[in-house]
Amino acid sequence: MLQVHQVSHSYGGSGWRKSKAAAGKVLDNVSFDLEPGCCLGLLGTSGAGKSTLGKIVLGLQKPASGQVTFEGFELYTKGRQGIRKVRRDLQAVFQDCYSAVNPLMTADHIIGEPLRNYERLSPAELKRRTGELLEQVGLAAEDGSKRPSQFSGGQLQRVNIARAIALKPKLIVLDEPISSLDMVHQTLILDLLSELKDSIGLSYLFITHDIQAVMTICDRVAVMDKGQIVYHTDSPSSLPSAEHEAVQRLVSAVLPQHPSLRTSWV
């Protein structure tokens, strides 16, 4: 469904910062495939290039080199014909739920936006669809008249998810969707995501630094470090025993489940 082939990217300096462009490559020859109905975890520390890869997959950031093909259409062609064909099948949910929505819009308006863009619905029909979507993500249809400031973080993330599934897309890029939520809501949102995946037949690209979330929800995991995929596995639960140094660094940073499991600081 999704093929990423030898993608490289660097954020070079431009203008007055050009001389300081020592940052170098953010992505270095990254390739992976994603088949329908699969949840691929992209695991790595900050600065590993996870989010850049997410943006490239979404068609938001043209890579310096390499190809991204979604459903047989190449995303970055001249005139951007490819991306127009698959735009509605690619959706995203980001970490900061508040900055992902317009604070002046109601939830109905937010969720209805993709529907208004792609489907010709009567106002009554639109209202019914947004109500259904809200109920699908565990909110009430009446919540549609609320504005973002009236939702808690976990609720607003549900609104974002409702918007992402409104057009029944094929792939959702989840960029740290649970990192800003508290423990209880993290679990609830993960449950909701796995439920939706099965009921709609979605695929996910799940970007995170949280190894426990990856082990909970993902079917496959790719570990990124310094712009490269350094480790790849089809069984996320085997991650703790992986011997790669970048994986071990993440595994050793997992906090204990119980105070009696405290280890001395390394």
């Binding site: 423990m183 993290q186 426990q212 909970t216 996320p236």
Partner: peptide
């Protein structure tokens, strides 16, 4: 208890 369970559930699924 709810807080503690939220954690344990994540671990069990893994």
């Amino acid at each position: 208890r709810m807080l503690l369970q939220a954690r344990l559930r994540g671990r069990k699924d893994a």
